[in-house]
C-alpha cells in the first residue's frame, strides 16, 4: 500500500471502506491487513501527539486495530471508517491520559524525540533509522511543541490535532469528538492561541 495522505488518500479510504467494512465483518484477514496499512500512520501520528510517548502510542495503535476487529459489528456505517477509527483512537488515548500519568510521568524521558542529554539527536531506538534531516533546533521546537500540546486540555488538544495534523474539516472533527461545530471551532481557536503563546520564543528564533 502506497503513501495515501491528504484529501486524495481520505477519499480513496472512504470509497474503499464500503467494501472493506463488509469484508471486515466477515473477519477477512486480508481486508484487515489493508485497513491496517491504510490507517496505521494516521492513528499513530494522532496517538503520539496526543500522548507524547512513542511506546504508549504504539500500544494505542495496536489497541485501536484490535478494537476494530472486535467491534466491527457495532460499526453501523453512519460515519466513515476513518472517522470511526479516529474516535476509537481518541477513546483509547483518553483512557491512557489519566491525571496520575500526566502528573507523575517524566516527560523529558518519555518524549523520546531523539535527544541525548547534550541535545544531540540520536537514532530512533525502535526504527534504527538515522535522522540526518533533523537539526537540533527543529528537534528542540518539536519538543517544545509537544510540551505545549501536553499543557492543553485533552479536548482542545484533540480538536487542534484533528484539524491541523489530520486535516479534517470542522464538521468531521465535530463528528469524531461528538461535539457541536461551534464548540469545536472555539476549542481549536483557544488551543492554537495557547500554543502560539507557549511557542513565542521559538517562533522568534525560527525567523533568525
Amino acid at each position: 500500500m502506497g503513501e495515501l495522505t491528504g484529501s486524495f488518500g481520505s477519499r480513496i479510504g472512504f470509497q474503499e471502506s464500503e467494501d472493506l467494512v463488509v469484508r471486515l465483518r466477515e473477519h477477512d484477514e486480508q481486508a484487515f491487513a489493508e485497513v491496517f496499512h491504510l490507517y496505521k500512520d494516521l492513528v499513530y501520528t494522532l496517538s503520539v501527539k496526543l500522548l507524547s510517548d512513542k511506546s504508549e502510542a504504539m500500544d494505542v495503535t495496536q489497541e485501536v486495530f484490535l478494537t476494530l476487529y472486535r467491534k466491527i459489528n457495532s460499526f453501523r456505517g453512519e460515519c466513515s471508517l476513518k472517522t470511526w477509527l479516529y474516535r476509537v483512537t481518541l477513546n483509547q488515548a483518553a483512557n491512557r491520559n489519566r491525571w496520575w500519568r500526566r502528573r507523575f510521568l517524566d516527560r523529558t524521558e518519555s518524549l523520546s524525540l531523539g535527544l541525548k542529554d547534550n541535545g544531540q539527536p540520536v537514532p530512533d531506538p525502535v526504527s534504527n533509522q538515522p535522522r540526518p534531516d533533523r537539526v537540533a533546533f527543529a528537534v528542540e521546537i518539536q519538543k517544545a511543541l509537544q510540551e505545549a500540546l501536553d499543557s492543553l486540555p485533552f479536548e482542545q488538544r484533540a480538536a487542534v490535532l484533528l484539524r491541523d495534523v489530520q486535516g479534517l474539516s470542522y464538521e468531521e472533527v465535530a463528528e469524531v469528538v461528538g461535539a457541536e461545530v461551534g464548540t469545536v471551532k472555539s476549542r481549536i481557536a483557544r488551543g492554537r492561541e495557547r500554543l502560539k503563546e507557549r511557542l513565542k520564543a521559538y517562533r522568534e528564533g525560527a525567523d533568525l
Partner: peptide, 8 residues
C-alpha cells in the same frame, strides 16, 4: 510546525 506527520 504541528503538521509534521509521524510514521510508524
Amino acid at each position: 510546525t504541528l503538521a509534521v506527520k509521524e510514521h510508524l
